[in-house]
Amino acid sequence: MIIKQLTVFLENKTGRLNEVSQLLGISGINISAMTLADTSEFGILRMIVSEPEKALSILKDAEFSARLTDVICLNSPNEPGALARALEILSGESVFIEYLYAYSMDNKSANIVLKPDNIQKCIEVLQKHKMELVSASEMYKI
């Protein structure tokens, strides 16, 4: 259930993001989801990639500050109110969310990547409420 998200510390400098995507591209690593959080000084790039361990070592070799972070992914119906229902459950059980990002796969479903404060508890809560979690292998394949 736990997905290894690749996180990279980036200074706000021209070309750094480009460097990351090129490094991964030439090594045949696919990015299935990504988000870039930025402050005025630096950015944090979060990605779900096809081979997290390999991608990590490639970036480290290129002297990027990178690490793998545990996240989970919730598959939710692509319809009004679906996200609200999921969040309602989590807040009802006092699961705090550090950040999330989401993307629609098609008309039917959407994936929501979550970084909760307590990942085990979050998984238990979601499973208890019969919410569908995407497996790591599925995520890396997308």
Binding site: T7, T39, R46, S65, R67, E98, K115
Partner: peptide, 18 residues
Amino acid sequence: EVQEQFFSDEIRQLEALR
């Protein structure tokens, strides 16, 4: 320079360090 072992994937922690 931020040491690798400190690097967090959470912005608020990096901001707190700053």
